[in-house]
Design a protein around this nucleic acid. Sequence first.
DNA 1: CGAAAATTTGACATGACTCAACTGGAGTGG
DNA 2: CCACTCCAGTTGAGTCATGTCAAATTTTCG
Lengths: 194, 194
Amino acid sequence: MLRKESIATEIFKNISLSQKEIELIEPKFHKVLVQKSEIILNVGEVVYDQYYVASGCLRIFYRDASGKEHTVQFAIADWWLSDYTAFFTTSKAIMTIECIQPSVLYRVSKKDMNFLYKNVPQTETFIRLKLEKAYAFFQKRILGTLYKTTKERYLDFVLTYPDIEKMVKNYHIASYLGVTTETLSRIRKEIIEN
Amino acid sequence: MLRKESIATEIFKNISLSQKEIELIEPKFHKVLVQKSEIILNVGEVVYDQYYVASGCLRIFYRDASGKEHTVQFAIADWWLSDYTAFFTTSKAIMTIECIQPSVLYRVSKKDMNFLYKNVPQTETFIRLKLEKAYAFFQKRILGTLYKTTKERYLDFVLTYPDIEKMVKNYHIASYLGVTTETLSRIRKEIIEN
DNA sequence: CGAAAATTTGACATGACTCAACTGGAGTGG
DNA sequence: CCACTCCAGTTGAGTCATGTCAAATTTTCG
C-alpha cells in the first residue's frame, strides 16, 4: 500500500503514523462530494460531524433576524469546517454551511474523533495545535475589526487569502467583512483609482 | 496533604489526577501577585509564559499606530491569559497585559506545558477542551460584530460578564466593543432613559 | 441570444467619530 | 474642613463613513 494514497497521512500532515494507526484512522473518514450551492448543514440540525476539506471552497454563514447573511468563515483545501459552536457540544446548528465551488470533503464524527484522540494520541496533539492556530487567527480578526478601516481589512483579506478571493463572489467577501456590497464596491473603486 | 490545597486540582478542574501526577504539575506553576495598573507583559518581549488567573482582573490590549488602546480580552478568576498569538509560536508580544484589579496568577511556561501534555495526557485533553470553548467564544464575538448594533453588543457584554463589568472602567468596555467612550456614554444614557 | 445574477452608481439618511467644553466624584494637602 | 486637582464620564456641534433604497450597468450562464 502506498502511503501517498492514505487519506490519514493527508489529513494528519507531518505527524508520523504506524501502519496500524493509519488503519485505525482511515475508516473514520468518509469521502463526500458536493456541488456548487449545495447545503451540507442546515440551521437546527444536530451537528455530529466536522469536515476536512480536500479541495474546493465552502462558507459558513449566519442568517440574522432580518434575513441578511453573515459569512463567519470560508474553507478551502486543508481547512476543517463545521458549526463548531454546535459541534463541540453536539447541539443544534445556528449556522448554514454552503458549498461555493465543487468540493471534496472528508466527514468525521465527534464520536470517532474522540476514539482517535484516545487511541492515536498524536491526533489530539495535532488538533490542539490546529485549535491554537485558530485562536491566533480569530484574535487577529477581532483586533482587525477594532482598529482597522474597512479598506484595510479588505486589502488584508485579498492579500492573505488570494486563493479564496478567486473563488468567491464579492458579496460573500462583503458579508465576511461586515459591510454591504455597495460599500465594498466603492472601496474597490477607490483602490483601483489610486 | 489535603487535595483542597493543591493548585493542580484547582487549575485542572474536574479531571482526575493521581498524587504522582499532582506532584508533576505543582512545581510547574508559579504564584504571582500583581497590583492594579501593573504591566505583566510588554510589547516586544518574547512570550514564554501563560497565566492562570486565580483571582482579580486583567486585560490584554493592542496599541495601534495612533496610540489608541484596543482591549482584546479581559480575564477574571479561572481564565487563562497570554498574548497567545505570540505564546503559541514563542515570538514577540504585540499586545500588553495590564492588571486592572489586584490579582493572583499562576505562571507556567510553554516548555512546562509541553512537558505536562506528554507526561500527564489528561492535561492536553483539558486544554484542548478549553481551546474548543475559546473557539466558540471568538466565533460568537465575531458574529456579533457582523450583525449586532453597538447597543446590543454592550447589553450582551453586561449580561454575559456582570463580574467583569463591575471591575472595569467604562473606557475599558468601550475599547473592547470597538467604540469611543463618548459613543458608549450616549448608548448608556439611551438605555437608562428607556 | 436572453434572462438572471452580480456589481456599480447616485441621492439621501444615520450612526459613530472628533474635538472641545463641562460635570461630578475621589483623593490630597494646606 | 475646604480648596484644589485629577480622572472618568457626559454633552454638544460639526464631520465622515457606511447604510438604505432605487436604478443602471455589467457579467454569467443556460
